[in-house]
Design a protein around this nucleic acid. Structure first.
Length: 470
DNA sequence: TGAAATGTTGGGGCG
DNA sequence: ACGCCCCAACATTTC
């Protein structure tokens, strides 16, 4: 019997994995393969934090496969034909990816494999619905979230998740790299020592279970960065350690509480972002709203560096940027604040923030990252209006009132009184003044706001309708 | 999934 | 007792 190859990509799990289930049912011996491709030129090479996650997730997957995971390095269109030749496999299955380069790669590969007589099948393992399954009455992709969401909800429920295959008959003795030889982990310095994550399918399940304990308070709790009020599922979902169908099914069962309802909407945003990228391959690189093509972004290396390092002198911004660097993740409320600060107060091109997040987030996801940066910049689909400029002081006082979040990540401010924790520059002289060792703000918040309004207003005067690439 | 400026209202101090 | 002013508190509008 000739073997079948399951090509793992962003679906590092056994349960509800349609490609794996298909292979296990086929009666053929199964080869579970992961290919690390550092060779194909790509604008979005996997970032450092992603590689850290991948290392641990592959280790977990290999354990669940009882050591049968095959690791190969190289171009997918070289590795797959090679391993097919070695093992005489006559079938390949995978779950679909939706990044433009992945779509292009997989389309070519499918054709060439089929031309060699290899059976190829692909499945939906990453989304509730395919990007082409939710369309307007005119058959076009949605550009506004709310009608997209209404249509998604009205569709018949996404398919029920499948159980992991009862037993898998593996095809043995396939050459494999060692994971260590891929050197996915950071060395000198080891910036991952404070990462507090459990990559892998079990870790994903635990994260979901822990979230279910607090989901009833999600609607408001999700906005408080000093406490755990969010699901922290994003990296697990990105790597496919848990499927959106699995999350949907469990959360849906609690739909009587508004927290569950609010959270399902976030899964909806994930779907929305993925269909946006699928239908707009330039989403990560070009503003959807073409009026932004000639926007006068400022080149300010010093400001960008201060932002990345969490040295802007604005507490909630610095706390967020340091949380990102230290833990590989940032609370969503704070992502909006730091993004607004970079784009509006500093007038730096959103793509610079997008790139930094791509390199530093363990949940870096091309679709979510690009769509959300465009959203904050005001050039994306269903975008925030240009005049919506977060005041980081007010946001801090509203969502981190006791300063617990700032104190945790900006130790220079740990002893500052609550009243001044989000504006240490206002600490009067007789109380000691601003703490030494913490920078003064790199931009005057009022001036920065006015400058952004002036710059963005010139765009708003251009009444030409939004032009989206077709 | 804002913030700031401006407008309105109503209670209380006080001449 | 009355009107005037002040100013929270809330509402509206503007960016």
């Amino acid at each position: 019997m000739k073997p079948i190859i399951v090509w793992f990509r962003q679906d590092l799990r056994l349960s509800d994995n349609p490609a794996l289930a298909h292979a296990a049912k086929s009666g053929k011996p199964v080869i579970c393969l992961y290919v690390l491709d550092d060779e194909t030129p790509c604008d979005w090479k996997m970032g450092g934090a992603s590689r850290w996650w991948l290392h641990h997730s592959l280790m977990a997957l290999d354990k669940m496969l009882k050591g049968h995971l095959v690791l190969r390095r190289g171009r997918a269109d070289t590795v797959l034909p090679a391993i097919i030749k070695e093992t005489r496999a006559d079938a390949v299955v995978w779950n679909r990816c939706y990044e433009p380069f992945a779509v292009a790669r997989d389309t070519v590969l499918r054709t060439s494999l089929q031309a060699e007589g290899v059976a190829v099948a692909s499945f939906n393992g990453a989304l509730l619905f395919e990007p082409w399954e939710i369309a307007t009455g005119a058959g076009k992709p949605y550009r506004v979230f709310t009608p997209f969401w209404n249509t998604l909800k009205a569709k018949t429920a996404p398919g029920l998740p499948q159980h992991a295959p009862k037993n898998i008959e593996f095809h043995d003795n396939v050459k494999s790299d060692t994971l260590e030889s891929w050197r996915l982990l950071p060395t000198r310095p080891d910036w991952s020592k404070d990462f507090d994550w459990s990559p892998g399918e079990d870790g994903a399940r635990s994260a979901l279970d822990e979230f279910l304990d607090i989901i009833s308070g999600y609607r408001h709790g999700r906005d408080v960065p000093g406490r755990t009020g969010t699901s922290r599922l994003s990296p697990h979902l990105h790597w496919g350690e848990i499927s959106p169908r699995q999350v949907w099914q469990v959360v849906r069962a609690q739909a009587h509480n508004d927290g569950a309802e609010t959270f399902l909407k976030e899964l909806g945003w994930r779907e929305f972002c993925h269909q946006l990228l699928f239908h707009n391959p330039a989403l990560p690189a070009e503003p959807l709203d073409k009026r932004f093509a000639s926007f006068p972004w400022r080149q300010d290396g010093a400001a960008s560096r201060a932002w990345k390092r969490g040295q802007t002198g604005v507490p909630i911004v610095d706390a967020g940027m340091r949380q990102l660097w230290q833990t590989g993740w940032m609370h969503n409320r704070v992502r909006m604040i730091v993004a607004s600060f970079l784009i509006k107060h500093l007038l730096v091109d959103w793509r610079e923030g997008e790139r930094w997040f791509w390199d530093t987030l363990v949940d870096a996801d091309l679709a979510n990252n690009a769509a959300n940066w465009q959203w904050v910049a005001g050039c994306g689909a269903d975008a925030a209006p240009f005049f919506r400029i977060f005041n980081p002081v007010l946001q801090g006082e509203k969502f981190d009132p006791g300063g617990a979040y700032v104190r945790r990540f900006v130790p220079e401010l740990a002893e500052v009184a609550d009243k001044f924790i989000h504006r240490p520059w206002d600490i009067p002289k007789n109380l000691g003044g601003p703490p030494a060792g913490y920078p003064a703000p790199i931009v005057d918040l009022a001036l920065g706001r006015d400058r952004a309004l002036a710059a963005f207003r010139t765009l708003a005067r251009d009444r030409s309708p939004l032009k989206f690439p077709t």
